[in-house]
């Protein structure tokens, strides 16, 4: 079977907190600079230096899609994303309330909800993030990369253990 759809993935530890992604997102979609309009938001714990990019996970069983009373939200399997049809949307904000990630936004200027549309396959946040805190990769790669990173740690630990053992002999 053909593997379809890349996914937007986040590596929070790499985020430097610059918020350029928020800026390019709002300029790309709305032609304005306004972090409030951004589909991606950096949540910060400033006193500890922790920055976490928050985005729509494009869920398979998307709660927003299920809760929508007028069926304005649907899955686009081609790009593996969840989309809102604003011709149908009545602006009730049920989707905003139910999203477990806070990824569905509501824009108070235009009185419309908004969410990540993966920029039709060329996510601008990824394009502009120099430190690769957000990336756009084949779904299967994510777990593979994580496996490799974890395996690397285990082998490093093993090597250290062997070295220590040799030293202590």
């Amino acid at each position: 079977m053909e593997i379809r759809g890349k996914v937007l993935t986040v590596y929070p530890e790499k985020c430097t907190g610059c918020r350029l992604c928020e800026l390019v997102c709002s300029v790309y979609h709305d032609g304005v600079s306004n972090a409030m309009r951004s589909r991606i938001r950096i949540v910060k714990w400033e006193s500890e230096g922790v920055y976490v990019p928050m985005i729509c996970q494009q869920c398979q069983d998307a709660p927003c899609m299920i809760v929508c009373p007028v069926k304005a939200i649907s899955r686009d399997e081609e790009l593996n994303r969840v989309m809102v049809n604003h011709d149908i949307c009545i602006g009730c904000r049920s989707c905003v309330a139910i999203c477990p990630f806070g990824a569905m936004g509501f824009n108070v200027i235009d009185r419309k909800n908004f969410k990540c549309d993966l920029c039709d396959g060329d996510p601008q946040c990824v394009r502009f993030c120099e430190v690769k805190a957000v990336d756009y990769v084949d779904a299967e790669r994510i777990s593979l990369d994580k496996k490799r990173a974890a395996a690397g740690k285990i082998t490093a630990a093993q090597r250290q253990a062997i070295a220590l053992e040799l030293e202590s002999r």
Partner: peptide, 25 residues
């Protein structure tokens, strides 16, 4: 603040910024 700052030429601004970033990094 959550007020819009309209960008005069958004497409060009994005592309030029990308060039700038390459130059800077």
């Amino acid at each position: 603040g959550t007020m819009d700052i309209k960008i005069a030429h958004p497409k060009e601004a994005l592309e030029y910024n990308k060039r700038f970033i390459d130059q800077i990094t």
